[in-house]
Write a protein that binds this DNA or RNA. Sequence first.
DNA 1: CTGTCCATCCGTGCCGGCACCCATGCGCGA
DNA 2: TCGCGCATGGGTGCCGGCACGGATGGACAG
Lengths: 222, 222
Amino acid sequence: MTSAVRPPARILLVDDHALVRRGVRLILDGEPDLEVVAEAGDGAEAVAAARSDDGLDLAVLDIAMPRMTGLQAARELARLRPGLRILMLTMYDNEEYFFEALRAGANGYVPKSVADRDLVEACRSALRDEPFIYPGAETALIRSYLDRVRSGAGLPERPVTEREEEILKLVAEGHTSKEIGDLLFISPKTVERHRANILQKLGLRDRLELTRYAIRAGLIEP
Amino acid sequence: MTSAVRPPARILLVDDHALVRRGVRLILDGEPDLEVVAEAGDGAEAVAAARSDDGLDLAVLDIAMPRMTGLQAARELARLRPGLRILMLTMYDNEEYFFEALRAGANGYVPKSVADRDLVEACRSALRDEPFIYPGAETALIRSYLDRVRSGAGLPERPVTEREEEILKLVAEGHTSKEIGDLLFISPKTVERHRANILQKLGLRDRLELTRYAIRAGLIEP
DNA sequence: CTGTCCATCCGTGCCGGCACCCATGCGCGA
DNA sequence: TCGCGCATGGGTGCCGGCACGGATGGACAG
């Protein structure tokens, strides 16, 4: 009860599944140095919570959420509270998501497939601002990341332009070239040209992969 | 330590995310009458666990899992251990999967959006063989279900057959008809025939909508 | 000013998705 | 037994995705 020990880190927990929130909360609250002080069920609530409480140390964010995805929320939170650490918690151990998360301002990335100890350690790492003491098993991802950092390349740029992203979304939503052309008042051929450039830049094969990319990146909802 | 009290129900917990398993386990083990005695990370492991332990009372199954989905596992478990109660735990409060779960032999259906108390109550209901004391908030689903039962219509027909679901997944993953045909040792024309039937049954327009449907339904990962 | 990047557009050609048409064999329930 | 649903296969034809080739004008930096 004295203040001899450092007070526990104040954590905002964001997941659209109450059950998952409860479970993660039980895991985190079991640690003396961690304390969940707020919960949110989607990105908008998370932003609201961070706006009303400036004493938060860490946000644990699920990626797949309705309305505002975790990635969108992360961008917003990073803008709103630059001091807030962000840990992405996700179903996907996918490399695409990993870099999307970094670009969105995340300090850490934890797949839900990890054990509870790893989550706790990831929280502590993020709180110490250690960028990526990575909770096991993600060696391929880590190696790739570290390679890029060491080679001085920094984070890979997202190559698509604004216009291309606009077309990307519309294509991923299932519109044909003609529909998109009508919508944007350009020729369907131009749409196809953009689409081809996007596919080439992102290393994708067709609209279908593009759709899944857009969903992963939080650009559209499934 | 005496046997004056009824021993706790022996539960098999199945989810592909270790973190979710851990959280749910903490919730269930906190109840004196519930005890998680086995865990599995996919459907195949779940079946193996049920095969090697005939004293299980309840299986809590996630629907969206790699390799064998929770629905397939539920069918197998219901066949293997008729006395075993099955509770489906899922991200989706989708009507399709609600009825699909019932058909697969589930005694209960709990979205992950419910609170922990509701999960506990759903477990107890399933263990008492009470078919659907439903954990709150699913009024639309419940109402629809009750309406159908009251109107004597019974369960709606399963929209897609097993074979069709198999093709559905492969199509949604981006394989061409020829690839799928080679994979399943059937003609690409048959694949196209199935695909056409699926699109018609589900009211979808093309592969792209089908992909998003499959992602929503948890059949594939983005 | 010149080069580069971006957005805009065009033609040609292949291939696959998808909509129609058709038939066969099998199992199951009315 | 007869129909029905399911899985299997085929044919034809249109259209759109996508690859490949080309061009132009405008913005901005070196």
